[in-house]
Computed example of a mutant assay.
Amino acid sequence: MEVRLAESYGFCFGVKRAIKIAERSRGGVTFGALIHNPKEIERLKNSFGVRLAQSLNELKSGDQVIVRTHGIPKNDLLSLRQKNISITDATCPYVTKPQKIVEEMSDQGYQIIIFGDIDHPEVKSVMSYSSTPVIVVGNLEELKEKKILKRVALISQTTKQTSKFLEIAHFLMCCAYETRVFNTICNATFQNQDATRKLAKEVDIMVIVGGLTSSNTQQLLNIAKEYCKDSYLIEDEKNLNKKWFVGKKICGLSAGASTPDWIIQNVKRAIEAL
């Protein structure tokens, strides 16, 4: 098989920063999964002694706590600061930006609308900074069912598609008296999505590598399927199925922002060996 890598793929700035923080901690504790890639989480545990805590009750005095890249709810952060523990905030700067916007806009009386997945930890984190109830929608049709106030502020989960965000922005500008639009989609997300879209048009099959629970990786898969119906999502080379490649000559390869390069290269070599 011929394998073509997307022009932009894999680790983004925020993830690289968080991984370095975790490695330097040598035995630190991440509050929530640091990133959405179980293989990398396992590597950090085995090689650097970094363990995972899913709740405040799992943390004890003296722990070196690392706040996950997606951020945590505001009240959880305040509770951490009241404990006798060391805290390193690895929240991606592209996530702290919408946190601040939501806090400021809600204090000014704007209705907060977030384009995102309500169960995603990033969205939960950002929502917690609002002083008023927040509307979270996954698409334009969901928004049309909501009661829109006169003054609204729109932000996006950092890993969403720009085109769908703009659809929502246009709708709000037509039905609200005042609409404040903040483009909080990460540049790396946009670049990876654009590169995947371009590559999917040129190949017979697309393979996206990343955590199955990763939002940005799922977005890459959705984009790839628009232009290449034979597109698949895997976590590593063990998930490859030889039947996918029957009759195919060129395979496109991209990866989510939480996917380490060592996994991507393992997948690339496995496909080339077919």
Rank of each mutant, 00 (worst) to 15 (best):
V3S: 11
R4N: 08
Y9K: 15
G10Q: 06
G10R: 01
C12V: 05
G14L: 09
V15T: 08
A18T: 11
A22N: 03
R24E: 10
G27K: 06
F31Q: 00
G32C: 08
G32Y: 02
A33S: 07
H36K: 13
N37F: 07
L44I: 13
N46M: 08
V50Y: 01
L52E: 14
L52Y: 14
L52G: 11
L52I: 06
A53P: 04
A53F: 13
Q54F: 11
L56Y: 01
L56V: 12
K60C: 11
S61D: 09
Q64P: 01
H70W: 09
R81C: 06
A90Q: 03
C92N: 07
Y94E: 06
Y94I: 14
Y94G: 09
P98E: 07
V102W: 00
S106N: 09
Q108F: 08
I113M: 05
I114Q: 00
P121C: 03
V123F: 00
S125E: 00
S130A: 12
S131N: 14
V134T: 11
G138D: 01
E142R: 04
E145M: 13
K147G: 03
K150R: 08
V152W: 01
Q161A: 10
T162C: 06
S163V: 12
K164I: 06
E167Q: 14
A169I: 08
F171N: 08
F171K: 08
L172V: 07
M173P: 04
C174S: 04
A176E: 06
E178D: 09
T179P: 01
I185E: 02
C186I: 05
N192R: 15
Q193V: 01
L199G: 03
V203T: 10
V203C: 13
D204V: 00
I205H: 04
M206L: 11
M206D: 03
M206W: 00
T213H: 15
T213Q: 09
S215T: 08
Q219L: 15
L220S: 02
I223S: 01
K225G: 02
C228V: 09
L233Y: 02
I234H: 03
D236N: 10
N241C: 12
K243S: 11
K243H: 11
W244G: 02
W244T: 05
F245M: 07
C251W: 04
P260A: 08
I264A: 13
I264S: 14
Q265T: 10
N266W: 02
I271A: 05
